[in-house]
Design a protein around this nucleic acid. Structure first.
Lengths: 157, 157
DNA sequence: GTATAATTGTTATGGTCAATAAGTATTTTC
DNA sequence: GAAAATACTTATTGACCATAACAATTATAC
């Protein structure tokens, strides 16, 4: 029996049927991420950072001497797209490039004191911003969510 | 006490320190999504669909007579960006545009039989592909994950 | 009732982002 | 020592998203 079309006037706002999309994990992950991302973006913009440059700064801070290829692998991005970001961070004085004496193809990346301080401050602000969104979850739901996401992430296909 | 730089040779593959990023929900959501998205993209490409066009087709199938503005709101995208996608789906014979008699500004969108069948088939394939990734979670973890993501998504800031 | 405002679909455009290919310098492998 | 591999870089491309502006139509204000 064919479903009758609703008059367009009957359907307002969020009253939209969905028998498929909402049950897909990919869809739900994207929607949840899209809730967080703009907030993080805005918070980081106050310090002149983008999400990707903050990610780089954070990994460099945690891994002084890391090299661009390793950084790209850690963040699952292309080396070529990293270059401009590293340039930005270097010109802003948040990181330094030092030639590796044993292999002059590579640059050892280290965060400056300013860079490390910015990382810590920005991280605090992001955590705070995330809390306003994730506040609806109790501590157990939250830790369980993080654990499950980590397991998905580590899944090798 | 300053942390000594590791020699770049000491750090291989995934042995990268991370004291901040991994504890951020936004980061974890993105990484998990990036695990699913390429698989869904590839599966849909076999039927000539993109993720966004499948999403549109699915919502139109579930809501015959829906109008472009409502569809855009449901998928949280811009009306202007919807136009080309609707064009594609119409030219492929998966949906039809019909003028709304009571409001000639609007087009009522309905999925054709071919469109509905494609939606159902593609949905099955996506679910199957997702299962290969989410298979590491038991049923309870999975339903709990979906519920938590839904709560995050509905959070109004 | 008519002028004004709002809505719908559309086009055009720009910005950001990710992926690829190709090039240079250096190191490793054979 | 020649050839292959690696690290970083540059340039380019296409996908995607947001915005502004427009015509047609409808709703609202007076």
């Amino acid at each position: 029996m064919p479903q009758l079309d609703k008059s367009p006037d009957d359907r307002v706002g969020q009253n939209v049927e969905d028998t498929v999309l909402g049950d897909l994990i990919g869809y739900r992950l994207k929607r949840a991420y899209m809730q967080i991302q703009p907030v993080a973006q805005q918070v980081l913009a106050e310090d002149g950072l983008r999400v990707v440059s903050f990610s780089c700064l954070s990994i460099i801070t945690d891994n002084p001497g890391i090299v661009q290829t390793e950084l790209a692998a850690a963040l699952q991005m292309e080396r070529s797209n990293l270059v401009v970001i590293i340039d930005e961070l270097e010109q802003s004085g948040f990181i330094a490039r030092k030639k590796v004496p044993t292999d002059r193809r590579r640059y050892a990346l280290t965060a400056t004191l300013r860079g490390r301080r910015l990382r810590d401050r920005a991280a605090d602000k992001i955590r705070q911003a995330e809390d306003t969104i994730v506040g609806c979850l109790d501590k157990e739901d939250r830790t369980r969510l993080m654990a499950v996401l980590e397991r998905l992430e580590d899944q090798r296909t």
